[in-house]
């Protein structure tokens, strides 16, 4: 059993249109490396200078990883990872 990663619309051009793809790894960082192997270009959209991008939200089993260790968040088979770009903006 793998980890299921749900991919937002804007990144589906990198996953052949798939809404969800399987991945493997022991941490979120590993999962993203594994995604990059199968879907080149995706890592750069998620990670900048070794940390999650400010306007990308990632959840492991519905928990925002900002509160669970970021890229070091542990994951295991059967976990669900959701990637959602922030909905943000403003006149500033």
């Amino acid at each position: 059993m793998a980890i299921e990663v749900r991919v937002p619309t804007i990144l589906r051009s990198l996953t052949g249109g798939e809404k969800a793809v399987p991945a493997e790894g022991a941490s979120l960082g590993d999962v993203i490396e594994n995604l990059e192997t199968n879907h080149p270009g995706i890592k750069e959209r998620l990670v900048d200078s070794g940390d999650l991008r400010r306007f990308i939200n990632v959840y492991v089993n519905d928990e925002d990883v900002r509160f669970t260790g970021g890229l070091e968040t542990t994951v295991s088979d059967g976990d669900a990872v959701v990637i959602l770009p922030a909905v943000a903006g403003g006149e500033a």
């Binding site: 900002r66 922030a86 909905v87 943000a88 903006g89 403003g90 500033a92």
Partner: peptide, 16 residues
């Protein structure tokens, strides 16, 4: 979540 006159951001938990 920003509660700001010049910025907005959906709360990440609400967004999920």
């Amino acid at each position: 979540a920003a509660r700001s006159p010049t910025f907005y951001e959906f709360d990440p938990t609400d967004l999920l």
